[in-house]
Design a protein around this nucleic acid. Structure first.
Lengths: 242, 242
DNA sequence: CTTCACGTGTGATGGCCATCACATCGCAAC
DNA sequence: GTTGCGATGTGATGGCCATCACACGTGAAG
């Protein structure tokens, strides 16, 4: 590990401070001990591809630190973000369990750490520990929920401003805790480019730019680099019908 | 069962002729024996609601005969079809496994038979037989795949004609075997209304009507009641880019 | 400092399709 | 039969947004 990253590497899952809050990682002691032997930890820079849509499955990645985008691309090169994966998620499950090609391309959005488990090891792991099966079901359930939300957003929203407002409000549910925080102002950190936001809500980059300009003009949002501040939540909420 | 339906009721899963071809039903002998005790078989007319989006989960339905649409509705009353479930699928899994409200409304499209398993029985069933867990994973995987296809269709297709052509071609992959079949003509049976087709591909009913008229005019499609015939597959395929 | 790549802001244009409106059709009930 | 309702066909209109085009800002690498 030659490069310096901004986070501490989690070597031992049993000692991981976040284990209990995470979707996939809160396994039994026995399972974690086994996991320790079959996992291979890697650290990736921003922009690394963990797996590619359409390729035969090599195994499963468990994201320890950092976030990653799951995307799918049409033959014309247009691509669409399916969701953003958070730490503690297992990626490539569908492919590994059913032996079919990866459904999506996974690319890190930040410097990240992930544990890799090869397909054979994972299937054995799954058969051996009943609680792993439950976690798999939980993760798959989560994937479905996210996908359904996405479908709802794409199919039921009327306009781009509505979709974008909904997205910003969702981000606002987990605000940063900044010291300069004023009441009624919600600061959030946005690491996606406008292009990526466009792919997330199914629109064009230019439209995202224009709609954001409109939100700023109305005094609903302040943007300073990667830090956005919701300055009028009510205004945004008024756009959302669903 | 006062009404007469057009199908034979499947009483015993062990004797079900289709068991092995179906997504959820091909369980071990032991699991099937137990299932026999905890399931409650019902027959529903067309248009019956098996469960409603947002309601607390009561249990799982396994569709034996007939098809059902899974849909979600916005607060404005606009609704969107997530997918069409085929015989052999387990419905309401997400809700039953995680104890959260049903994700979708399930409505039968034809007279149907389904086995109901209450939530407590299902959870016990799941814990007791390891192969049930695998089938659950398989079903959830299938749900995700369908949802991702839907997202791709909504987000990456350029136009309504493209989406509709894609849908018709997908239906054409499982053609009817009619006696009057001519070569290069693919007859399919369509039980959805144009309104439902519109909700499936995220457009308006009128547009579906217009695009179908265009397809007929070009000699790509013949529509006679619920039986559609693809008369020029190449024409439809030319519209599809993905 | 310069250079370049990448992200962002914004105008102009045109097409696709949602929406409203109404006619027509087919079918089931009576 | 006929009545009525749901499904379907089709015209007119207008708005949203994709697309093209180009300018500007900004940060990293040299």
């Amino acid at each position: 590990m030659s490069m310096a990253y901004n986070f501490r590497i989690i070597e031992d899952c049993l000692k991981c401070a976040f284990r209990e809050q995470r979707l996939f990682c809160d396994l039994s002691r026995e399972a974690l001990l086994r996991l320790q032997n079959i996992k291979a930890t890697s650290v990736y820079p921003k922009g690394a591809m963990l797996c590619l849509e359409g390729q035969p499955p090599r195994g499963v990645f468990v994201l320890c630190t950092g976030r990653a985008k799951l995307s799918t691309t049409s033959s014309e090169g247009k691509s669409m973000i399916l969701r953003i994966a958070e730490p503690g998620e297992a990626l490539g499950l569908t492919a590994a369990v059913s032996g079919t090609p990866y459904e999506a391309t996974v690319e890190t959005l930040e410097p990240s750490q992930a544990n890799f488990i090869s397909q054979v090891d994972f299937v054995r792991f799954l058969q051996e520990f009943p609680d792993v099966g439950l976690k798999v079901a939980k993760q798959l359930t989560h994937n479905c929920k996210c996908a359904y939300d996405e479908i709802r957003s794409l199919g039921l929203s009327n306009s781009v401003p509505e979709k974008l407002a909904k997205l910003i409000l969702k981000w606002g549910e987990n605000p940063l805790n900044l010291p300069t925080k004023k009441p009624h102002e919600t600061p959030i950190r946005v690491t996606l480019t406008q292009e990526e936001i466009a792919q997330l809500i199914g629109t064009s980059r230019e439209t995202v730019s224009r709609v954001l300009a409109a939100f700023r003009k109305k005094g609903w949002l302040r943007i300073k680099g990667a830090t956005w501040t919701i300055t009028n939540k009510t205004g945004l909420e008024a756009l959302v019908t669903t």
